[in-house]
Simulated assay, not measured.
Amino acid sequence: MKLNRQKILDFFRKSENRATVILKDKTEANAAIQEALGKAVTYRSDLEGVWDKLVLLYAVAKDYVNGEYREIPKRSIVAIVGGLVYFLSPVDVVPDFVPVLGFIDDIFVLNLVYKQVVKDLEKYKSWKESQVKEIGDLDGSAAL
């Protein structure tokens, strides 16, 4: 099956537009992010190739929306949430209910988003690791 790259990108742009709106409402944004994680967990076996990337995209989106991490350009967080919104849509370029192939376009979009924001994700991972280290230092577990 040959993917229509332009059609996927057009759907993704619509998802980014939706993400821009969603990000203005913390409750709606959190609900969308949680729903994306729930869908990902349900279909984890179909997403093995992008599972770690998806979990990282989910984490940065959650921390951004909750106000814990804001050191990311707006265009990057819109792309990340846009990717999650695209993933959530059951009817996109290749509908998710199509056996075996249903997630191929979602995987394409998630990989595309990851590549677009990889430098921002590296900064996020460093920040996240420093948070874990600080918590360890505070509770004394770092001394163990």
Score class of each variant (00 low, 15 high):
A61Y: 08
A59Y: 06
L88C: 09
A59H: 09
S126D: 15
T42I: 01
E48W: 06
V93T: 04
L84T: 03
Y69V: 05
Q6Y: 04
R75A: 15
Q6A: 13
E28Q: 11
Q116D: 13
D46T: 07
D25Y: 11
I107L: 13
T27Q: 15
N66D: 04
K115C: 02
S130V: 10
S89M: 11
F87R: 00
G38S: 06
K128H: 02
F11P: 00
D63E: 09
Y86G: 07
K2F: 04
E28H: 06
V78F: 06
V117Y: 15
Q116R: 15
G67L: 11
R44K: 13
L101F: 10
T42V: 03
Q116E: 14
K119Q: 07
L3H: 11
A79Y: 03
Y58S: 01
L9P: 06
S45F: 15
D52R: 00
K115N: 11
I8N: 11
V91M: 09
G102M: 07
A59P: 02
W51P: 02
V118G: 12
I104W: 10
L101T: 12
N4K: 13
K115G: 05
V81M: 10
L88R: 14
D106I: 07
V118P: 14
V85R: 12
E28M: 11
I72C: 03
S15P: 00
R75N: 14
R18M: 04
A59D: 08
R70Q: 05
D46G: 01
K125H: 08
R18T: 05
G82M: 05
N17G: 11
I33N: 01
L88V: 05
G49T: 12
A40V: 02
Y124L: 06
V113T: 00
L54P: 04
D106M: 03
L84N: 04
L121M: 01
L110R: 13
T27K: 15
D120V: 00
